[in-house]
Structures are given as C-alpha cells and as structure tokens.
C-alpha cells in the first residue's frame, strides 16, 4: 500500500501538516518495499484549484491513502473521484508513528 503524508519538514519525526494542500512537504511511503520518498510542495501558496491540477502526481504514483490534519474542499472532491482514502489525524502526531501503524 502506498500512502502520502503531508508534513511540515522532510524528515520522519516531522509533525503532520495542518492542511494537505498547504503543506511544505509530502512523504510517500510504500509499505510493500518499505521505502519513503519526499516531495516538496511547489503549490503551497497557490489556490486549491491550482494545487489540484498538480495532484495527478499522487495518482500516477499509485497512492491509495492520504494523511493530513485537514483537507481542502477541492482536494476532497478530487481524491473521492480517484477513490483515494483520506485520513485526518491530530496535528501533534509525527510521520513515523503513522508509518509504524501502516507497516
């Protein structure tokens, strides 16, 4: 299973970002290969419409679930249409705690 986690920094002990589309970094974790990849969010200051246009990248990478503290309306609509599961957690949670659960 591949999941994308919205993060404030590009490291595993980073806290989960408050809003998916406005996060600075994304961590793509593959539970089969046990690998993670960090992608910087170039659209963090853009509108949610512009961000959604770049979200195809996650679908191309085979993402099945996305984790953040909150999701914007446009990305919720987009992920629902792509059958991607959205998971909202509390903001003080770290990325490695989520990866340990998914493993």
């Amino acid at each position: 299973m591949k999941i994308v986690i919205a993060l404030n920094e590009n490291k595993l002990d980073s806290h989960i970002a408050l809003q998916f589309g406005k996060s600075q970094w994304f961590c793509i974790y593959d539970s089969v290969a046990d690998t993670n990849e960090y992608i910087q969010n170039p659209m963090q200051h853009s509108s949610s419409i512009d961000f959604c246009e770049s979200a195809d990248l996650f679908i191309e990478k085979g993402i099945q679930a996305a984790v953040a503290t909150r999701f914007g309306s446009k990305i919720i609509e987009y992920f629902r249409s792509q059958n991607v599961q959205m998971i909202m957690t509390e903001p003080n949670r770290q990325a490695n705690s989520i990866i340990n659960i998914i493993k």
Partner: peptide, 9 residues
C-alpha cells in the same frame, strides 16, 4: 479518534 473516508470497495 481519527476521521477518514471509505473509498468504494
């Protein structure tokens, strides 16, 4: 206590 969506299937 997490919130989530359930995709089809």
């Amino acid at each position: 206590r997490i919130s989530f969506t359930i995709p089809q299937g």
